[in-house]
Amino acid sequence: MSINVTGKLEKKGFGLGTWALVTPGGETYELKDPPSELCQAQGTVKVEGQIRDDVMTLAMIGPVLEVKSFQLID
């Protein structure tokens, strides 16, 4: 089941760094294998993806969101 999450990209400093999508409400999603264009996005983005409950990570910053597609909002 896909979900849509809107927020800004942030690099969190665990290990060598992990890409996160932080919503205006402060929820943090860990992005699984985000495409490099997404990581360069400066403003707000809307990501369509799937929450991977079967995945654990070294960053442990929040639910793991596997990116299917994304669009820049501003």
Binding site: E30, K32, D54, V55, M56, T57, L58, M60, P63, V64
Partner: peptide
């Protein structure tokens, strides 16, 4: 990142191969 099934396998591997302590610096 990694899957729960791999991690579960690794835990069993450790137990079967004489590990005394397991460290898992991972989560989610």
């Amino acid at each position: 990142g990694g899957t729960i099934s791999d991690i579960a396998d690794a835990i069993r591997f450790a137990a079967d191969n004489g590990a005394d302590v397991i460290n898992m610096s991972l989560g989610g």
